[in-house]
C-alpha cells in the first residue's frame, strides 16, 4: 500500500481488506484520524530493537498446554444452528459464490 496515498484512499483500501465499506465522508474522517494516529505511532522507530525478540508471555514451566484427544460433551448443534441468520436444513446458507 502506498503510505503517501491520500488518507481517504488508504482508508478505502484497508476497508476493502477488512470487508468494511466506507462512505466517502467516513473514509475522509477515518482516514485523517488514522493519519494522525499513524504519525504518532512512528515514535516506535526511536527504540533500539536490534536483537530484541518479539514479546511472549511466560507460561508455566514444563506445561505444554496440550489437551487429551478425547471427545467432550455434546456441542449443542441445534441451538447453534438456530442462531444462524440463514439455513437450509442443517446447512448454513449464503448468497451463491464460486469456490
Amino acid at each position: 500500500m502506498n503510505r503517501s496515498a491520500p488518507p481517504e484512499e488508504m482508508a478505502h483500501e484497508l476497508a476493502g481488506l477488512a470487508r468494511l465499506r466506507l462512505s466517502d465522508d467516513e473514509a475522509r474522517s477515518i482516514g485523517s484520524q488514522l493519519d494522525t494516529v499513524l504519525a504518532y505511532l512512528r515514535c516506535l522507530a526511536e527504540a533500539d530493537v536490534d536483537g530484541v525478540p518479539e514479546f511472549e508471555h511466560e507460561s508455566d514451566e514444563g506445561d505444554q498446554a496440550l489437551r487429551a484427544d478425547t471427545p467432550g460433551p455434546d456441542g449443542r448443534v441445534e441451538a447453534i444452528l438456530a442462531g444462524a441468520p440463514k439455513t437450509r436444513g442443517s446447512l448454513v446458507a449464503v448468497p451463491k459464490f464460486k469456490d
Binding site: A65, L66, R67, G72, G75, R76, V77, I80, L81
Partner: peptide
C-alpha cells in the same frame, strides 16, 4: 450428517479459544 460434528469452537463462536490436541501433535 452435515454440521452434526460441530461445537461452539467449530463455528467460531465469540469467546471460544483453541487448545491443541496432544495426539495430533
Amino acid at each position: 450428517e452435515s454440521n452434526a460434528l460441530t461445537d461452539a469452537y467449530s463455528w467460531g463462536l465469540p469467546g471460544t479459544l483453541p487448545v491443541p490436541n496432544q495426539r495430533a501433535v
